[in-house]
Design a protein around this nucleic acid. Structure first.
Lengths: 122, 122
DNA sequence: CAGCATCCTAAGAGATACTG
DNA sequence: CAGTATCTCTTAGGATGCTG
């Protein structure tokens, strides 16, 4: 417990929204969970090639704290934890969609490459 | 010239869009320029309380490079430079709007404070 | 006025090893 | 399986002083 001041003060709404999305993998996590409905920790790892365990859990915890992600723990052996979007997370995803389209257009515009994300077409 | 790889590769559209908006003051710059139409360097500084010259010019340069901002130089003494949004910048602002509303709602939700931005009500 | 150069700090991110 | 705990590295960001 040393970081994550979070929750303002903010300059404006965009500032407040960005605070919740900023983080190298957060928008990807949002996207993964939105498309798969629910994912286990290891599944998310596989879906986000390059992410470290540390970053993934750190982002997930923050997103949970921010009310975007729901964490369901099954007290079993071996352990099982499922992550999914809350309604709030879904609503964020919705307003992010136009931005995503803009970005896709930008990729075309500048001829940017897309890193292939395996386990995403499921 | 040591930083600013920029332009991909990206995981998805949101990734590509975020790349252009990420930076502590970029969304604010977008907002300022959108509301004032055109602003001089010093005016932007005043409108963004707390920004350093370095960060402001750095962000402006990147946004110019990204095609979001237009930089008009008047070869006068004393120097005069005016910044404004390009059509592309305006289009980004448009897709950012829903995100801004979501963020504003989030501020209400969590009771976040808003830092007062002077010279903004003009 | 508008901007560049330099130095410095702190937060973000990555790698690796270990545990309930 | 689903994490924790460190340690290191890189980057964004900030402060200050100088220039065309």
């Amino acid at each position: 417990m040393a970081k994550s001041a979070r929750r303002g003060p903010y300059f404006c709404g965009i500032d407040a929204a960005m605070d919740v999305v900023t983080g190298k993998w957060k928008s990807l996590i949002l996207w993964e969970l939105h498309h798969h409905g629910t994912r286990r920790f290891a599944e998310l790892r596989r879906g986000l090639p390059g992410v470290s365990e540390k970053m993934l859990i750190q982002h997930l915890r923050e997103m949970e704290e921010d009310g975007l992600v729901h964490r369901e723990v099954y007290r079993e052996v071996p352990p099982k934890v499922e992550y999914s979007l809350t309604e709030y997370g879904v609503s964020l995803n919705a307003v992010l969609a136009p931005l995503g389209e803009w970005g896709t257009e930008r990729m075309r515009r500048i001829g940017a490459e897309k890193v292939s994300v395996n386990a995403v077409t499921t």
